[in-house]
Amino acid sequence: MVRPLNGGVPVMLTVITLIAAVVIIVVGYQSGHIKSLVVEPVREKDKFTHEPTNPKKPITHKVDHSKDRGNVYAVYALAKLMSGGLVHEVMNLADVNAIRDRSDALPCGSAQAGYR
């Protein structure tokens, strides 16, 4: 799925966002161990909390779609397991960019366009 990030430059979130975590979670989803999966960018004006020590609700993300949300500063993946547990990963843009910059996908496509 292509979505505009900072500056309106489109990037493919399914490639860049949480590359390592998403691959692991998607494999788990395909294996039948994951019930649901959410992968989203977090923008400056979103209401976002990350409580890694709260096993029942480690991530809260509220979005007001009627207003400009600002630039992306983080991305996350949240998976609910068939067993009822949750697994999650949150990364800031520096972490995502470091993975992108090492990616074999460069220098082509949306990975090259970036979103800094």
Rank of each mutant, 00 (worst) to 15 (best):
Y76S: 02
L106D: 00
H50Q: 10
I99P: 00
I24A: 05
H61P: 06
P55S: 14
T49Y: 04
R69V: 06
E51N: 13
N92S: 10
I99Q: 05
A79S: 06
Q30W: 12
H50F: 11
I99K: 08
K57D: 12
R69M: 10
L18Q: 15
S83K: 14
I99D: 00
K47H: 00
L106I: 00
L5F: 00
T17P: 10
A113H: 02
K56H: 14
G84Q: 14
K62N: 11
S83E: 07
M82S: 06
M82K: 12
K57R: 15
E44Y: 02
V2K: 12
D68F: 14
P55R: 13
A20W: 13
N97P: 03
D95K: 03
M1F: 13
Y76I: 02
S83L: 07
H88P: 05
I24D: 08
I19N: 09
A20L: 11
V87A: 10
V72C: 01
G32C: 10
G8S: 07
K62Q: 11
G28N: 04
K45S: 05
P41E: 09
I59L: 00
L106R: 12
L13T: 12
E40V: 08
R69T: 07
G109Y: 05
M12Q: 15
H61C: 01
S36T: 15
D104Y: 11
G70C: 12
S66H: 05
E89F: 11
A74I: 03
C108N: 09
G109H: 08
S36M: 07
Y29M: 10
Y29P: 01
T14V: 13
H33M: 15
